[in-house]
Amino acid sequence: MVLAGPTEAILKVHDSLKEKKYTVIKLPVSAAFHTPLVGHAQKPFSKAIREVKFKKAIIPVYSNATAKAYPTSARAIQKQLETHILNSVRFREEIENIYGDGGRIFIEFGPKNVLTKLVENILSEKDFSAIALNENPKKDSDLLYREAIVKLCVLGLPLQNHDPYALPNKEIPENKSALSVRLNGTNYISEATKNDYENTLNDGFKVKNLVTSESKSESNSNKGS
């Protein structure tokens, strides 16, 4: 629970809760935002909002003042934002509504993981994933960011170009090797065979009678019998 109000009243509540052994933390904020106490800032804020050109919403964006998705109309979104800083934050209802509408992955931007822990508390009995991009200010923020990206990729998010410091990919030229010939018994040619090839190419392609005298003699003897 977050309480906001005049400083004196908040300090009294703080001390009273401490006496009753509750854990109480004073938030380091400069004003009681989301209360009528910042009404003096609402008019210039509203004026600035009206000077911004809004477009029709493409994806659902939830308001922590209504706990529901903003209207799709550009003018309706603009009008709702004009009084946004005067309304209480309905964070629990907002997270429950996002979950009810199908949201299962919650990503916290900014330092620490306060909101991630709140989501884990709100949806403790449900199936979801909550990831902070920079969960610990005492650790390497770049490393934490990369670890969070890996977790999101594992969850199936099609993330691309997420590293602003990545060097462009360079195409490595292929080294074309000289013609390779596999050596084995099938392509071995003996010197005698080479000579036969050479003689064949130089004798006018004549077919020689290769019948030996021994074969002739055997043939004649067969005729005599």
Rank of each mutant, 00 (worst) to 15 (best):
F128N: 01
Q160L: 13
L159W: 11
G102D: 13
Y165H: 13
L167E: 10
L167K: 11
V150Y: 02
A148Q: 05
N97Y: 01
C153E: 13
G156L: 13
S88E: 15
N136Q: 10
P173F: 03
L144H: 00
L157P: 07
E135M: 00
P158K: 05
G156T: 15
E171F: 10
L86D: 00
A166P: 02
E147I: 09
N97T: 08
E108V: 06
V119Y: 03
N87Y: 05
V150A: 12
T116W: 02
V114M: 06
I95A: 07
V89Q: 02
R104I: 06
G103C: 09
L152H: 06
I149W: 01
P173G: 03
R104D: 07
I172S: 03
K151A: 12
P173T: 12
I131H: 02
E93N: 14
L118Y: 04
A132H: 03
K170M: 14
H84G: 01
I85P: 00
K126Y: 14
I105T: 15
N121P: 00
N113M: 07
G100K: 10
N136G: 10
D127S: 09
I107W: 07
N169G: 12
L152G: 04
V154D: 12
L144A: 10
E96T: 07
L118N: 06
E93Q: 12
